[in-house]
Design a protein around this nucleic acid. Structure first.
Lengths: 233, 233
DNA sequence: CGGCTCCTTGATCAAGGTCAAGACATGTGG
DNA sequence: CCACATGTCTTGACCTTGATCAAGGAGCCG
């Protein structure tokens, strides 16, 4: 399921500057390097399950992941994504609760795991680092609250438009202008919180109206202005 | 709209022990007392508006509040409540963003406002305090994520049952066993994320089935087990 | 008493969920 | 290389949930 690989070196890791770890001193980053464990996960592998107690936080070195909750009928609801430089599982470690989501690799992924105690000690002793973590969790909280409003008051059509904008913003585009992530229709549905069929119908409607181009699972936004208008932000 | 009143004294304030402030030293709590401003707000008063920049965090000394977001059509979505001992606006201050909700008094309320800089300095210099704030925001984040799942996948009936349990848990009961908060049907609807009429119909159905007792705006849960079963947690 | 706000009920309707069936693509092992 | 299996996508038909609209009643306050 996961295997050890040659490890990125924390104190000059390329993704360090993207994450809250950029606030660590050289010395702290060096000690981090000694304590971490680095592993490769294949596409589809589960990193951890909702409800489980976790040993530490993960820093994404390579690849993309989805974090989702599972509903009463087994349906997934994607809560957020992660990409290189992101931390995952920090919520669980910092709050001392069990994981509130399942983390799964969307493609081959390399993760470094930092033991909870090491992470908590850093947070406790380096106030720049702890303030960065506070900012991180508060920002995510703001985003979750925003999404609550959307789910409660917007139509599926509006939410799909908004989801496309979010994906574009977060994953950016490849050389051909397609959003740089590959998701099934079902996965898009579990971002938006609706049925797969609804996503299919709406996407082909967007296509018919010249708002998007579809090429297999790849999506290109052709008319940003109109999508933004539909999203009703 | 708000008026100065005789101030609770932070370093022996009765609500201090309920909040993250319990991690402050005597000295820190004394300095807090010098910097804070304490005000009374009448029922219905707005403390601050979504989108505004805030001057500091508020500590609830007395009374209950609702924090809500407003949707495109002006409909409210309640994100959380606050009661004595709770902090509000901390998310905005800690993340450095504008307020993501509007805060409104559900009854007469007394709030102490702590200036942002004072609050941030405490967070920066007292690691027990900052860790408590981290826990607080991470816990709220977990709750918001939970609610996202509910909105996306549960029926209005399930969500109402769950909302009643949440209200019971948070506000507890008065001497007669009624949930200790007074909300209009419309406000309940804007917790659940549905129309007022749906709440009315479902509440009277719950009443018919002997699950709840209704006395004006007051609600008593008669059959906790069945409500829990409906909530489907 | 008149004017609020809030609650309640009934009728109607649309958004979107569910079900079923088939097309298409992809990968596998023989 | 083919046959098959599996997973994903797509479309159409149908039906349920819950939103909306309308109207009236109840309670409360100046």
């Amino acid at each position: 399921m996961s295997k050890k690989i040659s490890e990125p070196i924390c104190y000059n890791c390329v993704v360090k500057e993207l994450s809250a770890f950029k606030h660590l001193s050289q010395e702290e980053a060096e000690s981090l390097f000694l304590d971490k464990a680095c592993n490769l996960y294949k596409k589809g592998d589960i990193i951890y399950y909702e409800g489980h107690r976790l040993r530490g936080v993960y820093c994404v070195y390579k690849g993309k992941l989805k974090l989702y909750k599972t509903g009463p009928e087994g349906k997934q609801q994607i809560i957020r994504f992660a990409k290189p430089g992101d931390l995952i599982a920090f919520r669980s470690i910092l709050s001392g609760e069990a994981a509130c989501t399942t983390a799964q690799a969307l493609e081959d992924v390399v993760l470094c795991q930092i033991p909870a105690q090491v992470f908590l000690n850093l947070a406790r002793n380096n106030s720049n680092f702890s303030m960065a973590l506070i900012k991180l969790s508060c920002k995510e909280l703001g985003e979750s609250n925003k999404f609550i409003l959307d789910l409660a008051q917007k139509s599926v059509r509006e939410r799909l438009a908004e989801a496309l904008l979010l994906l574009l913003d977060y994953f950016e585009t490849d050389d051909d202008g397609f959003i740089n992530v590959t998701l099934t229709r079902e996965e898009i549905a579990s971002i938006v919180g609706t049925a797969t069929e609804s996503i299919i119908r709406l996407l082909s409607e967007f296509k018919k109206d010249g708002l998007v181009e579809l090429k297999g699972k790849k999506i290109k936004i052709l008319d940003l202005k109109k999508i933004e208008k539909i999203a009703n932000i």
